[in-house]
Design a binder for these strands. Sequence first.
DNA 1: ATACATTTGTACGCCTGCGTACATTTATAT
DNA 2: ATATAAATGTACGCAGGCGTACAAATGTAT
Lengths: 255, 255
Amino acid sequence: MARDTAPRLLRQFKPSPDIAASDGKVGNLILRSLPRKESSLLFPEMEFVRLMLHQVLHEPGEVIRSGYFLNSGLGSLLTTHPDGKTVEVGLTGNEGFIGLPVIFGFKTSALRVVTQGDGTAYRVEIGTLLRMLPRCPELERQLQRFSMLLGMQSTQLAACNRLHDVTERLARWLLMSHDRIGGTVLPLTQEFLAQMLGSRRASVTGAAGILQRAGAIEYSRGSVGIVNRAKLEESSCDCYVAIERQKKRWLVEAN
Amino acid sequence: MARDTAPRLLRQFKPSPDIAASDGKVGNLILRSLPRKESSLLFPEMEFVRLMLHQVLHEPGEVIRSGYFLNSGLGSLLTTHPDGKTVEVGLTGNEGFIGLPVIFGFKTSALRVVTQGDGTAYRVEIGTLLRMLPRCPELERQLQRFSMLLGMQSTQLAACNRLHDVTERLARWLLMSHDRIGGTVLPLTQEFLAQMLGSRRASVTGAAGILQRAGAIEYSRGSVGIVNRAKLEESSCDCYVAIERQKKRWLVEAN
DNA sequence: ATACATTTGTACGCCTGCGTACATTTATAT
DNA sequence: ATATAAATGTACGCAGGCGTACAAATGTAT
């Protein structure tokens, strides 16, 4: 099976605290939106951590010990299958939180969560978070709203997986990632993309070739450069804009 | 396009109240689990309604005016596309609630919600529900938990749509529906199923033929009989059990 | 009873993506 | 510098599903 070599990509690391790194800049949008009352309660309890490429934050079936507010980089939510196949069913960057099930009283993760691109996050132990929540109503509301947004996203991805071909989905994926990762060069192997898209690595090669010939991206061993976002949007299915549109609409409604 | 005739199936009806019908039996599991305190607040504000086949409860982009606690029958959550294609991205029966976005402060639906099979529900106006929620903490918790379960379901469907063929998905769909509809005969046309599965009607014909020859179902003009559930489970992909397993696990954890 | 609409069966050519395999290129370690 | 590992390009046959079309069967209305 083509996926036999794949799992090596997804190594398990322990995020390590970085004492000197918390240089005052909070990238996470949920944290930034909190009233001073709540953030002053919260921040002393959190740990600033550096996340590396392909770190596994949560594993399906395992107890969720920490939650993560991403400042930069992104996290992919994946379903896993016995034969090693994976499919990305959700994606979040600094707009969200990783560890949602605990907010609703559940203890284990249903999905694998993998980081993509180096980044930083505020990590919080679940016990601590649950103790804080009753005193942080705005945080709770934000987390709940985000869970709905993420749910909407995955319904759109469900449809996307059904209706659109590899090239369209690859373009959509690159757009979503580009939005969440600073810079125009994304560190990506085709094997990794295949795991995100739930396709063969060889199919990704083909799709990447099409996007490259269209002048949208530039591919070279382990990194993708976005050279023309407009063309990338042309090559993508509507799912990208559908998600963005709905997100905006709801965020307006909620105020 | 093959779907040109399809929308006729999804007629818009207004659910009509049925005064004499509320014969004391509450089928909805969320409502049944509520403490007397909350249900006595809630029930006077709700209306018992009869739902007919293929009623459209919510339409994407439209303001959600009423929420529904299903007692029987089921509701399908569908993404819609400009060309008329639809894909089911969620499914709920008497275990859930229809109208989740409003719980989190959003006003419009992102999805089309269609009933399948005759059934009944308790309908509540959104304004009323939102006024009740602060006084019904258990209801709020239940609704939030259900939204997470539904989210998990749609992530599984996202993967399912990517990895499994029509026959497996049809079998999965029938199992999920069978769980939620009383009786072994489901009123279904192949055209309707095609809209659920996001496939051609002709593909459904083929898949239904396979399941029929396997002795799992019996198909005849507009209705499917489940004649052998075990065989149906054999023909289905793991997604059915994956969803059920995770649901059970989480429900245990949450107590 | 007859006409009409709906539902189902079936067929055709086509294209995408799968599983698999192997060669080639590029980076990394010794 | 050389060996090893990782990443990419490419090829092959094959299966599933698509779009489309039309005929047959089965309800429903007049």
